[in-house]
Design a protein around this nucleic acid. Structure first.
Lengths: 165, 165
DNA sequence: CTATTATGGATATATTTTATCCGTAATAGG
DNA sequence: CCTATTACGGATAAAATATATCCATAATAG
């Protein structure tokens, strides 16, 4: 079971965007530079976040990305779902249907016990991620960072954030 | 986030082995036939289950696989861990360390807020799977199966189970 | 001794992830 | 209107992983 690194990048990106003063936006280029990741690939994740309505993109000069909603309404699950999709991690291939003692279609109206258990476990996983929203993430980051680093981040944002009308 | 199908096969295999009368064993060939999956690949999963101490393997004529412990002590998590490993699904690449505002080593003693959240979510996932053990799985299967199918399964087991001394 | 069966390693194939590029569309500012 | 900037979407390439198979070896029952 693995999660692509795009999720990690997207999460850090959203956390950073949540620190940008209202009205500001950051270009994909700037975001990739801040995170130290390849710009074209990060762009892919940004597009996914945009389609999911998590960030708002604006083209053209002085364009870039900003959060599309209040940070309180954006959870880690929202970000994960936007980047990785919502397909269940456990893919039931209906093994019970095949083999010499395979079940008839009639016996398989509901999900099998194994698939049901994984489905439930995934629901717990989703719920846990849904409970974590951007404000608590940036609080956690702020807790670890030294005052000097916090200042440097704010200055960096100030230098790179385009101010929309 | 995806789980290999080996886990599904392994789970069905364990459920089947739990239905074998005490002292009986099933060969890898027979198990693959019952599930309708490629024998050499199922063998790989069986080896993983064997290494994890979930099934006991016996070589030679009249050899095969049987459960190594009581069904009550084998959970879906045990099986998943044996086949997929226990590496965390979220792989933190320490993004916070890189880029123009990267954190110093000192600021990164603990896991970052994002990694911590995923770690917690995965713990919930594991716990949910740990709560599901073989007896409840076979109960679920028995619930769906018609009496005729249950009989056929028992007959199949009887025909293929080698009886160890 | 022979037939059977699991083991571990090596290998091949398919699929997914990761990464990059380019043409197009939109936007701000001159 | 023109130009520079920037996001978008699709196509593509490279790397990693999952899936699947094979074989030589070791163990075991009869």
């Amino acid at each position: 079971m693995k999660i692509g690194k795009g999720v990690e990048w997207a999460a850090h990106t959203c956390a950073l965007l949540a620190m940008v003063p209202a009205g500001g936006a950051l270009s994909g280029e700037a975001l990739a530079d801040f995170l130290g990741v390849p710009p074209p690939y990060l762009a892919k994740q940004l597009q996914a976040l945009s389609r999911a309505g998590i960030v708002a993109a604006k083209r053209g000069a002085a364009g870039g990305y900003r959060l599309a909603r209040l940070p309180e309404t954006i959870s880690l699950w929202d970000i994960t779902a936007a980047v990785e999709g919502t397909a269940p991690s456990f893919r039931c291939t209906e093994v019970r249907r095949s083999g010499p003692c395979g079940a008839s279609a009639k016996e398989c109206s509901g999900p099998c016990a194994i698939a049901a258990a994984f489905r439930q476990a995934e629901a717990e996983y989703r719920n846990a991620l849904s409970d974590v929203r951007l404000p608590s993430l940036i609080a956690g980051i702020a807790e670890d960072a030294t005052p000097a680093r916090k200042r440097r981040i704010m200055e960096w944002i100030d230098r790179h954030a385009a101010n929309a009308a």
